[in-house]
């Protein structure tokens, strides 16, 4: 029985340098159970780099991670995945020529085993795909056989998010999931985030969308500036003015 007070994930002094550039400089914060943390900051502040460090695709070169209270090494995407950390990247990892089912199961296809001809179990996957899409109330994809290239941005984003759900993760990292989406589709993705949280998954989401996403659904807001944590707010104490001030570093702000 895990202590509800133990953070699911804790970052301590995470740093990353690219040659002469310090992309991350001693970033620390906690992600608690059933919580959405929004990661905000200006372009180049280091948000994507931080997500990549947690997901293991660009390993950090300083600091440590605690997962459910235990110190862990995250050096490859496999390490992160083994812990139950899934990532939805900024540039969607969707194949335009594959259909919804194929995209959902990419890399984790159900097959009949070598004795059964290594056949893809297409029907079983389709059934499971319908269940997952239904769970997340993704109702606008009319035909699961339609190639993803012909779906809308919101539908593709929904596929990308549902795909990581198939692995039943504890922590979900999303890099700008609402960028390039229309108003209605953005709303759908925000709904998806809420549903993830209600299923007891913890979320770190990067977004520039202060009003609709960050101040609406995030429980806490972590502000990065030039690779450092500039501020951290609980939603109750945050408003657009304070957050923007922390992002730009122009006005005074009250660190939490």
């Amino acid at each position: 029985m895990a202590d509800t007070e133990t953070p699911v994930l804790e970052l301590r002094g995470i740093s990353k340098r690219f040659g002469g550039i310090t992309a991350l400089d001693g970033v620390s914060f906690q992600l608690k159970r059933d919580e959405i943390v929004a990661l905000v900051g200006d372009n180049g502040a280091g948000k994507s780099t931080l997500i990549k460090a947690i997901s293991g695709s660009v390993p950090a070169d300083g600091g440590e991670f605690l997962f459910e209270g235990n110190k862990v090494d995250i050096n490859t995407p496999v390490d992160a995945r083994a812990l139950g950390i899934e990532t939805v990247y900024q540039d969607l990892a969707v194949c335009d020529n594959l259909n919804t089912v194929q995209n959902l199961f990419l890399g984790q296809e159900l097959t009949s085993g070598l004795m059964g001809g290594a056949r893809l179990r297409k029907a079983a996957m389709e059934k499971r795909a319908r269940e997952v899409l239904k769970d997340f109330q993704v109702t606008t994809i009319r035909s699961l056989a339609t190639p993803a290239g012909r779906l809308s941005g919101g539908q593709r984003q929904a596929i990308a998010i549902c795909r990581c759900m198939l692995r039943n993760p504890k922590v979900v990292l999303l890099d700008e999931p609402t960028a390039a989406l229309g108003v209605a589709q953005r709303q759908q993705v925000i709904e998806l985030l809420r549903r993830l949280r209600s299923e007891h998954r913890s979320i770190i989401v990067i977004s520039h969308d202060l009003n609709d996403l960050v101040l609406e659904v995030a429980d806490r807001i972590v502000v990065l500036r030039l690779g450092q944590k500039a501020a951290e707010f609980n939603r109750a104490d945050a408003d657009a003015g304070k957050v923007i001030a922390a992002i730009t570093g122009i006005a005074r702000h009250a660190p939490h």
């Binding site: 496999v78 969607l92 194949c95 594959l98 194929q102 890399g107 984790q108 893809l120």
Partner: peptide, 19 residues
């Protein structure tokens, strides 16, 4: 076989899927 199609359309997606 499916990965042949996937790589032709978005190789980085395939890589991120762990293939």
């Amino acid at each position: 076989g499916l990965y042949l199609y996937a790589v032709g359309s978005n190789a980085s997606a395939v890589a991120r899927a762990g293939v």
